[in-house]
């Protein structure tokens, strides 16, 4: 039976009551996203600790995508006719990093640098097995659920 699956493994905890992005932390306290198993730290090939990233942060910068990205690689369910512009940005997650992300709000007039944002896991496309793929996005805090990426 078709189900909801993350677009890629190790992107975020799923299924989960409160999903979170997954990062990798090295012994010097630095965090990387997406998660990777190891990294050179001070010349030593270190295994990274799998950590859940904060679910809330502030909008550091953003822009908009007006036309459907070239496909492949883009794998959205939309077509050039049904494509809805979307916004992307970096959200600063306190104590962790700035993560590049799609935003659920596409209108630049409703976005501003410094805005409080929170993680959402939203439907995106369909995989080869007919499952609905899910991706991470950030929404302005307080925005209604389910209005992300034209997917309501």
């Amino acid at each position: 039976m078709a189900q909801q699956v993350p677009l890629a493994e190790d992107l975020f905890t799923w299924p989960a009551e409160e999903p979170a992005l997954i990062g990798g932390r090295s012994s010097d306290g630095k965090v990387v996203f997406p998660y990777r198993s190891h990294k050179l730290v001070g010349g030593v090939n270190e295994e990274l600790e799998r950590v859940e990233l904060p679910r809330r942060g502030t909008l550091w910068t953003f822009t908009g995508q007006r036309f459907r990205p070239p496909s492949p690689p883009y794998a959205g369910d939309d077509t050039p006719k049904t494509f809805e512009p979307f916004a992307v940005g970096y959200v600063e997650l306190p104590g962790a990093l700035r993560v590049e992300t799609r935003l659920t709000e596409a209108d630049p007039d409703k976005l501003h640098i410094g805005q409080e944002m929170e993680l959402r896991i939203v439907p995106f496309g369909t995989d080869a097995d007919g499952n609905q793929t899910m991706i991470y996005a950030f929404a302005p805090v307080g925005a209604e659920e389910g209005h992300g990426d034209g997917s309501e």
Binding site: L7, G64, P69, P73, Y74, F86, V88, Y90, E100, I135
Partner: peptide
Amino acid sequence: PGWYGEAGLFLTTHFFGM
């Protein structure tokens, strides 16, 4: 990673805007 392109993030133009 492949998902970065599938999600519509593999576009240099985003960087210039941001």
